[in-house]
Write a protein that binds this DNA or RNA. Sequence first.
DNA 1: CTTCGATCCTGAAGGC
DNA 2: TGCCTTCAGGATCGAA
Length: 274
Amino acid sequence: MPELPEVEVLRRSLASHLPGARIESVDVHDVRLRERVDTRRLRAAATGRRILALERRAKYLLAHLEEERTLVLHLGMSGRVTVVPADAARLPHEHVAFTLDGGRRLRFVDPRRFGLVLALPTAGLGSDRHFASLGVEPLGDTFDGDYLRRRARGRRGPVKAFLMDAGIVVGVGNIYASEALFLAGIDPRRSVGRIGAERFERLAGAVRTVLARAIELGGTTLNDFVDGEGNPGEFQIALGVYDREGEPCIACGGPVRRIVQSGRSTYLCVRCQR
DNA sequence: CTTCGATCCTGAAGGC
DNA sequence: TGCCTTCAGGATCGAA
């Protein structure tokens, strides 16, 4: 469900509720996430501490706590994080819940259990295995066509897989990879070794444009994405190709095609993308 | 080193 | 109606 825009939208929506809140208790109802939840460690890190600030790194949501602790949340494919009244009924698949002061609860719901909830020392975040090998932020200063061109040197394989490689650039998942390549007019099957400087520049620009626009529109809600207050996004109405197989291309009117690359759907217009 | 495929898991949707 | 298959927005691991 969530790529960079969805996690960023979530972070922003929680930013008006969580900073300043104190975590009174932590309930773990099911430890079986992508990595087993370490309940004792989570409780030790969070209980009694206030949330200072929220940050996003790649598709991870980071809640920095007092005394150099950080909660790390990842939504996987189906995760939801919302703030609700503390006495709200527990939802199915509500695996972890943080009771906050002011009668509120931060709930983590994840039917498929590909998500992640853990606590780390703030100082060691960068060297933690989840973060150590991540590439650059696509909305940051160091991401541009020249960066892509340098990282593509000596690589083969289709450009779509390259774009989705978190060791290169983070946050671009299956939806926004298709969308950025459509906007850049590049065929997702094209080998990265056969893309020139000018097209890398266009691709970098397209990635930034698509992600920024998706954040503005509150993310993409195909199925179940909601922000921290339970509101769905609206970028799905602005999608150019994703999930539009057989429908007319918004640029040329030709049919949008669906292909499969490394086991995942890719959508493209073969007339507009070369 | 890269690159590909399989895998974790549940639920929704479509075909018959 | 029900049963079966396929597919889904992520990340990791082992094999080639």
